[in-house]
């Protein structure tokens, strides 16, 4: 992997955020230089000067240091990607790494480009940045590892986009669990990450009931996960496999794991509204939570 390139807006914002923590003399020197650039009349020349100034100070303030260190440690990734770009993420949720294919002159050995999306403020928090980078680069390493067998598309469900979303969520939770498990064992993640993953796992695989915790332990401790293994578990967790195919809501026909079972059930007023739209429906047939919400909400407006 060659030296990463940094997006100008990320560089500029990181430098501006780091400026107050710089020694006063440095900050003043930076400001003197920056103020002068405003006087350049030509738009392109002014923009180029701003970029060059911010890039110089980015290096001078050492804001690239953690990324360089982690990239140096991660030979499993460095050897397999072409160049890396670091761009600005607008929110913490957007932070992460992606692999992007680019047409290369040497079609026989195409190597993807690594794109890191980071918030400028994250560059000022070395510990958090280090943890984030290792987590993201482990994802990338899996994607590039033939033994993992990564495939870009998950199997499409016959049950529509909601089932696809569920599968994608479960896959993500499982993959994150194995990654933080591996990072914990080499001392690059800690109890905080483990707790966070357990919370996600417990929510995504609530149907496992009492078996949920042991399943989590198994995935957290797994050393050689594969894409196929993750997909298989996400598609049919053991409990679902035993219970057969999930049913459908008699009203919206969407597949659901279970029909609504909240206390109090369907009120007579709501039942009347449902019957108006679905004359053949009977309360014994049940309905999904979304439909119950919908018809409860419609009920008062018909009053």
């Amino acid at each position: 992997m060659t030296q990463p390139t940094y997006a100008p807006d990320l560089v500029e914002e990181a430098v501006l955020l780091a400026e107050p923590t710089a020694p006063a003399a440095s900050a003043q020197a930076f400001r003197r230089e920056r103020d002068r650039i405003y006087e350049i009349v030509d738009d392109d020349a002014r923009e180029a000067s701003f970029r060059s100034l911010h890039l110089r100070w980015f290096a001078r303030l050492g804001l690239h240091r953690v990324i360089d260190q982690v990239a140096h440690q991660r030979v499993d990734v460095a050897d397999r990607v072409n160049v890396s770009r670091v761009v600005r993420a607008l929110t913490r949720q957007d932070e992460g790494a992606d692999l992007v294919d680019e047409a290369t002159l040497d079609a026989a050995s195409p190597t993807p480009t690594l794109v890191l999306r980071l918030c400028p403020s994250t560059l000022l928090r070395p510990d958090a940045l280090c943890t984030l980078l290792h987590n993201e680069l482990t994802h990338v390493a899996d994607m590039l590892d033939p033994a993992f067998g990564y495939e870009r598309r998950l199997p499409a469900s016959e049950d529509g986009p909601s089932a696809d979303n569920i599968l994608r969520d479960r896959y993500r939770v499982l993959w994150d669990t194995t990654i933080d498990g591996r990072l914990t064992r080499v001392g690059l993640a800690g109890p905080t990450e483990r707790t966070a993953r357990w919370r996600e796992f417990a929510s995504a695989f609530a149907m496992l009931g009492e078996g949920c915790e042991s399943a989590f332990e198994e995935w957290f401790n797994r050393t050689d996960p594969t894409h196929a293994g993750l997909v298989a578990f996400a598609l049919t967790p053991p409990q679902l496999a035993n219970a057969g195919k999930p049913g459908r809501c008699p009203l919206c026909r969407f597949p659901v794991a279970s029909l609504d079972a909240r206390d109090g059930g369907v009120s007579p007023a709501t039942e009347a509204v449902i019957r108006a739209a679905h004359p053949a429906w009977r309360i014994e047939l049940g309905l999904c939570s979304q439909c119950l919400d919908l018809y409860e909400a419609r009920q008062p407006s018909c009053a």
Binding site: L90, T91, R92, C119, P120, S121
Partner: peptide, 9 residues
């Protein structure tokens, strides 16, 4: 204080 990107957006 200087609000963050997230707080503005």
């Amino acid at each position: 204080y200087l609000p963050t990107d997230e707080e503005w957006n």
